[in-house]
Amino acid sequence: MQKIPLLLAREGMTLARDVFRGNASTGMPICGKGHELTTSLIERFDKLEVQAVYVEGHPVWEEGGASLDNLLCALDGRFIKTMHNPQNAMLHTIYKAYLIKSMGGDCDRQAE
């Protein structure tokens, strides 16, 4: 599952979570999960000020298609100077877990 800005939502993607008006997370959903996106549906979301949607899989690849490996490698690179500091090492571990969670489509779906 991936959360993407509405600007990057495309026809054919499948909603992984209910969509609410104006990005609220409560109330009546305006579209249920499992729905396949269409151009007109995306336009409707836009009118209702939806900013982001959760979609199945990982259809949007930022920065020239970074894979999980690439992302983790970049993360290590950013922390290279400060891993000796316990709080920085902690933040590194947290980010590593976060990246694995956000990129692992299948295990993520089971968890929800």
Binding site: R78, F79, I80, K81, T82, N88, L91, Y95
Partner: peptide
């Protein structure tokens, strides 16, 4: 520090700064 760790945007720095003890303790994180 968190935004630099995330790699979001570009501040000009490629490396995450060290979290300062005084900040960590002041906020009791």
């Amino acid at each position: 520090v968190i935004v630099k760790a995330s790699g979001f945007g570009c501040s000009g720095d490629c490396f995450v700064p060290q979290i300062e003890d005084i900040a960590w303790n002041t906020l009791q994180l």
